[in-house]
C-alpha cells in the first residue's frame, strides 16, 4: 500500500529552528506510523511563497504549513493579531500560559471555519528594537522611520511611539537601513542576525517588547480523512517536534545575541525595569486602539490569563 504523503512547505532555510522542527516532525511521524505516512518537506519557499502558502493549503495543494501568526488576521481570524500586541508578554512563561491555555486553543479552533486545523504553536522569539540612533526611551522614537511587515497592530505600535511606520519589501530592507531610507526596525535576535541587520544598525535595545511566532497547521479535509490511529501518532510526533523546535529557537536567539554582541557593529542596550514601565505606559494605549479589531473580550481573557491589571 502506498504511504500517505504529507507535503510540508515552509518559507525559511532547512537549518532554522522552524526548518529543523519540520525535519524532526518528519522523522518522528514516519517512525511512529511505521512508514504509513511519508512527510515531504519543501523549505525556502521552494513551492509557495509567504503570500501564497495559505491559499495553497486551503486548496489542498500542500497539506502542512508553519506560517507566522500574523498571517491569520487577513485570513479572517483577527484574534491572532493578539500576538502582535506590544508589551503583552513579560517572558516565555507568559507566552506558554496563553498558547497552551484556553485563549490559544480557542484561536486555533477558529481556524476550522477556514478549512484549517491548528496543531501547534512554534516560537521564533521575542523582538529587539534596532535603529541608527539610540532607542532607549519612547521619546527617542520621534520621527524615526521604522520598517514593519504589513500589520495594523505594528503600525499602531510605532504610531504610538511617534515613529513613522514603513511597510517595505524584505529584499529592500538591508539597503534601506544602510542608506537611511528607514532608520530602524524590529525583529527577533535570530532574524536580525541571519538577515545581517546588525551590520547596518548602530544601536539596539533588548526590549522583548513583542513576539513573533508560528502555527503549524494542516488542511482540515486531509486531517479528518486520516485513520484514527495515524492521526494520534502524528499528534504525538507533532507534540515532541514542537518541544524540540521551541527549545532550539531559544538557543538560536541566545547564540545570535552573543554573536551580534561579539561582532561589535551594534551598541546593545539592555532594558531596565524602569524603562520597561515607560514603554508599557506608552504602548498600552495600542491595546485599546486595537480592541475593535482583535476583540475586547479576547484581550480581557488574555489579561486574565497573564495577570495584567
Amino acid at each position: 500500500q502506498d504511504p500517505i504523503v504529507i507535503k510540508f512547505s515552509h518559507v525559511v532555510a532547512p537549518d532554522t529552528p522552524k526548518g529543523k522542527g519540520a525535519e524532526r516532525f518528519k522523522q518522528l511521524a514516519e517512525d511512529y506510523t511505521d512508514g504509513a505516512v511519508k512527510v515531504e518537506i519543501y523549505p525556502n519557499s521552494q513551492l509557495y511563497k509567504d503570500k501564497e502558502e495559505l491559499e495553497a493549503l486551503q486548496m489542498g495543494a500542500v497539506q502542512m504549513l508553519a506560517p507566522s501568526l500574523a498571517k491569520f488576521g487577513p485570513l479572517g481570524v483577527p484574534g491572532f493579531e493578539l500576538f502582535d500586541l506590544p508589551m503583552l508578554f513579560k517572558d516565555r512563561d507568559d507566552l506558554v500560559r496563553l498558547t497552551q491555555g484556553e485563549v490559544g486553543q480557542d484561536l486555533m479552533a477558529q481556524l476550522e471555519d477556514k478549512g484549517i486545523i491548528g496543531l501547534a504553536y512554534w516560537d521564533n522569539g521575542f523582538k529587539i528594537m534596532t535603529a541608527n540612533s539610540p532607542v532607549i526611551s519612547p521619546d527617542d522614537f520621534l520621527g524615526l522611520k521604522m520598517r514593519i511587515q504589513s500589520s495594523k497592530v505594528l503600525e499602531a505600535q510605532f504610531q504610538a511611539l511617534g515613529a513613522v511606520p514603513q511597510v517595505m519589501a524584505f529584499s529592500e530592507v538591508y539597503q534601506a537601513l544602510q542608506t537611511g531610507v528607514v532608520d530602524g526596525t524590529e525583529n527577533t535576535p535570530s532574524n536580525t542576525y541571519t538577515q545581517r541587520v546588525n551590520e547596518v544598525q548602530k544601536h539596539a535595545t533588548v526590549s522583548n517588547h513583542g513576539y513573533l511566532g508560528y502555527a503549524v497547521i494542516v488542511h482540515k479535509g486531509f486531517w479528518d480523512g486520516l485513520p484514527e490511529d495515524v492521526r494520534a501518532n502524528l499528534e504525538k510526533a507533532m507534540a515532541e517536534a514542537s518541544d524540540y523546535a521551541n527549545d532550539i529557537a531559544q538557543d538560536e536567539n541566545d547564540a545570535a545575541m552573543q554573536a551580534m554582541r561579539d561582532a561589535g557593529t551594534t551598541e546593545f542596550h539592555d532594558m531596565t525595569e524602569d524603562e520597561r514601565a515607560e514603554w508599557f505606559a506608552a504602548l498600552r494605549p495600542v491595546h485599546e486602539q486595537m480592541a475593535g479589531r482583535i476583540g475586547a473580550d479576547l484581550i480581557q481573557r488574555a489579561y486574565a490569563a497573564l495577570g495584567i491589571e
Partner: peptide, 13 residues
C-alpha cells in the same frame, strides 16, 4: 536585485 536574492537565498544556511 539578483544579488539581494542570492544573499537572501543562501543566508541562514
Amino acid at each position: 536585485i539578483v544579488m539581494v536574492m542570492y544573499s537572501v537565498a543562501t543566508s541562514g544556511m
